[in-house]
């Protein structure tokens, strides 16, 4: 093949490269939101963000990772807004000066799902503590996120209240997947193990097989989401105006109504509870 075509190929590649890199430098109105997989996987963002963008012209780019990772990324300044569900960690984040202020945004709840055989006989229970005790006593398989996510933090807190240290059985009946909620659900379904998930992810999850919700309804399973603007005093590049606009909108009656209006299969997944 002639040299010319190679040169042309390289030229084309360079142009391609330019076209891809250029937008990164363009002054486009967008913000980066560090958030959790549950909000993304449930489809909430797909529903909320277009409304916000339509109103303000601000594009919202969501990076959905575990809460622990989201907090770390935000601490590094790799985001303008943080939207997660681990209140103590969030408060610490703000206290350390990485966030401006934390606002309650909405809540959903956790449920414990499991196989229809229900070897630990927890079906229909309300109290998650009692249920976890029974699961541990029966040495029934339990899949844990094991990834320091908000859900994982919550799960560990519940085990602690049940006075059980499941990590002693790690690798036996207690199985830490070290993965996101979806991957952990896939694993639980595959292994016939119990697992704890947020309701939103569960309702939207498509690979349930014959798994069912076995434990639900107790206030101990309450899952509070908060929203924080990353502190511009720490990271000068934070887009304060746009980020604040997003936070304000989420907390406004309009944003709260939009959260309440989001339903999957007729079920409301998130319950807005921003303080007026």
């Amino acid at each position: 093949m002639p040299r010319r075509s190679i040169a042309a190929g390289l030229m084309a590649a360079a142009l391609l490269l330019g076209s891809l890199v250029a937008p990164a430098f363009a002054a486009e109105a967008f913000i980066v939101v560090q958030s959790t997989t549950s909000t993304q996987n449930s489809g909430l963002f797909d529903n909320l963000l277009p409304r916000f963008t339509k109103k303000t012209g601000i594009q919202v780019r969501v990076v959905a990772v575990g809460t622990g990772q989201a907090l770390k990324n935000a601490r590094n300044g790799d985001g303008d807004v943080l939207l997660v569900h681990a209140k103590p960690a969030e408060l610490k984040f703000v206290e350390a000066g990485y966030g401006v202020k934390r606002f309650d945004l909405m809540y959903n709840d956790f449920v414990i799902v499991g196989p229809p055989k229900d070897p630990a006989k927890v079906g229909g229970m309300k109290d998650p503590i009692a249920a976890l005790k029974k699961i541990a006593a029966a040495k029934a398989a339990f899949a844990s996120r094991g990834d320091d996510s908000g859900t994982h933090k919550k799960e560990r807190a519940l085990w602690k209240q049940a006075s059980v240290d499941p990590t002693k059985a790690s690798g036996k009946w207690y199985r830490e997947t070290g993965s996101g909620m979806g991957a952990t659900l896939n694993a639980a379904v595959g292994m016939g193990a119990y697992t704890m998930t947020d309701r939103a992810t569960w309702i939207a999850f498509k690979n349930k097989a014959d798994f069912k919700i076995l434990v639900e309804g107790d206030t101990k399973l309450f899952n509070q989401y908060g929203v924080i603007l990353v502190n511009p005093n720490r990271h000068k590049h934070v887009k304060v105006k746009e980020g604040q606009a997003f936070v304000d909108w989420l907390l406004s009656p309009e944003g709260q109504a939009a959260i309440a209006a989001y339903k999957v299969k007729g079920q409301q997944l998130f319950f807005p509870n921003a303080k007026k």
Binding site: T37, M181, A183, L185, N186, F205, N207, K208
Partner: peptide, 10 residues
């Protein structure tokens, strides 16, 4: 990766 985590294997 995302669709798998949503359980949307199809």
């Amino acid at each position: 990766a995302l669709e798998t985590s949503k359980g949307d294997l199809a």
